[in-house]
Simulated assay, not measured.
Amino acid sequence: MKVGFIGTGNMGSLLIESFIRSGALLPEQITASNRTSAKAARLATLHPGLQAVPSNVEAAHGKDLVFLCIKPLEFKTVIDEIKASMQPEQMIISITSPVLLARLEEWLPCKVAKVIPSITNYVLSGASLCIYGSRIEAEDQNKLETLLGQISKPLRIEEQYTRVVSDLSSCGPAFFAFLVQKFVDAAVEETGIDHQEATALASSMLLGTGRLLTEGGLSPKELQSLVSVPGGITAEALRLLDCELNDVFNRLIRTTHAKFHEDVAKVSAAFYEENMNGS
Rank of each mutant, 00 (worst) to 15 (best):
V123N: 09
E158F: 01
S118F: 05
G210K: 07
V112H: 00
L179V: 15
A102D: 13
C171A: 11
A102G: 07
T199E: 13
A102L: 08
F176M: 12
E137V: 08
R163L: 05
N121F: 05
A202G: 08
K221G: 12
L108T: 00
E158L: 08
V184E: 07
L129K: 03
T214A: 14
V115H: 00
A138Y: 06
N121C: 15
A186T: 11
S97F: 04
S118L: 12
R211E: 15
K143D: 02
A102T: 07
A200M: 07
E189N: 09
A198H: 01
Q90S: 08
Q196M: 05
G210Y: 04
G210M: 06
F175K: 09
S125I: 04
S134V: 03
R156Q: 14
L155I: 14
A102H: 11
S125C: 14
N121H: 05
L124K: 11
Y122H: 14
A127F: 13
D140Y: 04
M91C: 06
G172D: 08
R163Y: 00
P98G: 09
M205L: 13
A174Y: 03
H195M: 00
L223Y: 11
V184A: 05
T120P: 03
L124M: 10
S169T: 05
P109Q: 07
Q181G: 03
V123A: 15
G216Y: 10
S152N: 07
I151H: 01
E137P: 02
G172C: 09
Q160Y: 13
H195Q: 13
S219L: 08
I95V: 15
D185Q: 15
L144M: 03
N142Y: 00
A127P: 10
E106H: 06
A174N: 13
S97M: 14
Q196R: 14
Q90F: 02
Q141M: 02
K111N: 04
F183M: 13
K114C: 05
R163N: 13
S203C: 04
I136K: 03
T209F: 07
E215V: 15
